[in-house]
């Protein structure tokens, strides 16, 4: 799905080092399709052992909503499970903002139409504060211009030009790689491990 410019509210999750086992616990990785992971997103933070909602967890607090997740540093560390990106996307998140992301998660997010935005620590504390004061704070995401803004201030972010184009146009890496069949086969003729 092409990624357009949009404005939305955000969900704050200030925890640091949120690992992929928290985003989607291993016991929910038994599916053979990509659908339906959103209901188990942050499962053990969201529900108790009996399946009741934990009222102190942000996804269970109705004052917070929106397709933007604002979170602490090193989000998505741990396992390579793309199920973490599928769960976030299935739940409805389109953007995650953090001081930085684990490498594999970042790739997985981009491959699933989720935009990871890296912000500095000062900006992060401002946005957390803004949402705390007013949960209806609107954030504008402007991918084409690599900018995002809230409270009348605008911040820039960086994204690889190729990844940006893929997101905006809804392309994926597969089409590009398949188009490289010729060069790949040529490479193989000379390569030691082929």
């Amino acid at each position: 799905m092409p990624f357009d410019k949009f404005i939305d509210t955000a969900v704050p999750l200030p925890a640091t080092n949120v690992d992929t086992d928290q985003i989607i616990p291993a016991r929910f990785l038994k599916a053979t399709t990509r659908e339906g992971f959103g209901k188990n997103l942050f499962r053990d933070w969201r529900y108790d052992n009996e399946g009741n909602e934990k009222s102190d967890f942000v996804l269970n607090q109705s004052i917070f909503s929106g397709s933007i997740l604002v979170t602490g540093k090193n989000f998505g560390c741990g396992s390579s499970r793309e199920h973490a990106a599928w769960a976030l996307s299935d739940y409805g998140f389109k953007v995650v903002i953090s001081t930085f992301f684990a490498d594999i998660f970042k790739n997985n997010a981009l491959n699933n139409g989720i935009l990871p935005i890296v912000a500095d620590a000062v900006t992060m504390s401002k946005i957390f504060k803004a949402i705390e004061i007013d949960p209806t704070t609107k954030i504008e995401i402007d991918l084409p211009n690599e900018r995002w803004s809230f409270d009348r201030e605008t911040y820039s972010f960086e994204i690889n030009a190729f990844k940006k184009e893929c997101l905006i146009k809804g392309y994926n890496n597969m089409d590009y790689l398949v188009s490289k069949k010729g060069p790949i086969e040529k490479f193989e003729q000379e390569h030691i491990y082929c």
Binding site: H83, I104, N107, N111, N160, L177, I184
Partner: peptide, 23 residues
């Protein structure tokens, strides 16, 4: 040697390549 997500598993199966920015 490094870990990849399932979309990349599919790409390696289809093309024996991934898209990579040098770390």
């Amino acid at each position: 040697a490094f870990g990849i997500g399932t979309s990349e598993v599919e790409q390696v199966l289809a093309t024996q390549c991934v898209l990579q920015s040098k770390p």
